[in-house]
């Protein structure tokens, strides 16, 4: 019998990988999660603590998946601190995924927004010419650069890192690089996930050039299935209609790039 995605399944953390001082990847075995589409997420239960929405990270081993978590508040910190052998619960996968285009592709990711980008890379065709932009505040916070290169060995590709303080790669905001690239190149598909302002600017620049662009949004989530309403952005529910939306749709949504809601459901400015 197929398992009910809404019912929690317990998995064991098998391996913990340090990505940066504040980011770790937790690997676990689960056939269902190993096969999700780029953009899909799981609700991850940290027993006794909380449950968080997490993009499902790839693993290089068959039948395995992972979560890559940045420690932030109490919930994500508890997940970050889990050790091999400990239990987590997963339900899902939830949400839609990116529409794949072929040809010249641009991916723009920041922080843990790189997680769906890495999975998306595993869906590239060998003929695709792929550029990956990774934005970080500073050198210490750069991760997945090597992984991106490794996933693209069969493709014409480049991986460009920008840091706000110039301590690694190109100096400046990743969105400045987006602007530079879309000004001189045509892309058949632009995909982005990360901080909302980064996505907002990326979508604006790409859209202004008439490019096909999609972004994967994050919002406060409780149910993950379109019941509680906490993840609403305008008329859309991120967990159910998204997380991936087309750029033109997003630009017509008055909340995208401007507001998200807190735990009580009151809009707060980004």
């Amino acid at each position: 019998m197929q398992r009910n995605p809404n019912h929690t399944t317990i998995c064991i953390v098998e391996k913990v990988i340090d990505e940066t001082p504040t980011v770790r990847t937790l690997v676990f075995s689960d056939d269902v999660m190993s096969k999700v589409l780029p953009g899909q997420f799981a609700m991850v239960w940290i027993p006794g603590v909380n449950e968080l929405p997490m993009s499902v990270m790839i693993s290089n081993e068959l039948g395995k998946a992972a979560f890559t978590v940045r420690k932030h508040g109490p919930a994500s910190t508890a997940l970050f601190n889990l050790k091999a052998g400990q239990q987590i619960g997963v339900r899902g996968p939830y949400g839609n995924s990116f529409d794949l285009k072929q040809g010249k592709i641009l991916l723009v990711g920041g922080g843990t927004g790189l997680v769906p980008m890495m999975r998306l890379l595993t869906f590239m065709n060998p003929q695709d010419d792929v550029t990956v932009l990774i934005g970080a505040k500073t050198k210490d916070e750069v991760f997945f650069e090597d992984l991106a290169n490794k996933l693209l060995t069969k493709n014409i590709h480049q991986v460009i890192v920008t840091t706000d303080d110039g301590s690694y790669g190109e100096k400046g905001y990743v969105t400045d690089m987006v602007k530079k690239l879309v000004d001189v190149n045509h892309y058949d598909g632009v995909y982005t996930c990360g901080p909302e302002i980064m996505m907002f600017k990326t979508v604006q620049y790409a859209h202004s050039k008439g490019l096909f662009v999609q972004a994967s949004l994050e919002r406060m989530m409780k149910c993950g299935v379109g019941i509680c309403g906490s993840c609403c952005v305008g008329e859309d529910l991120v967990c159910r209609d998204g997380t991936v939306f087309d750029g033109d749709h997003l630009l017509s949504n008055p909340e995208f790039g401007h507001f998200h809601r807190n735990k009580a459901g009151i809009p707060e400015i980004y």
Binding site: L52, K222, C223, V225, N262
Partner: peptide
């Protein structure tokens, strides 16, 4: 006044259908 509600998990599906929240 605004209420934050309980921490997650706040809702999940039962194996054979139905929800508890």
């Amino acid at each position: 006044e605004p209420w934050e509600g309980y921490p997650n998990p706040t809702i999940f599906g039962l194996k054979n259908g139905g929800w508890i929240n």
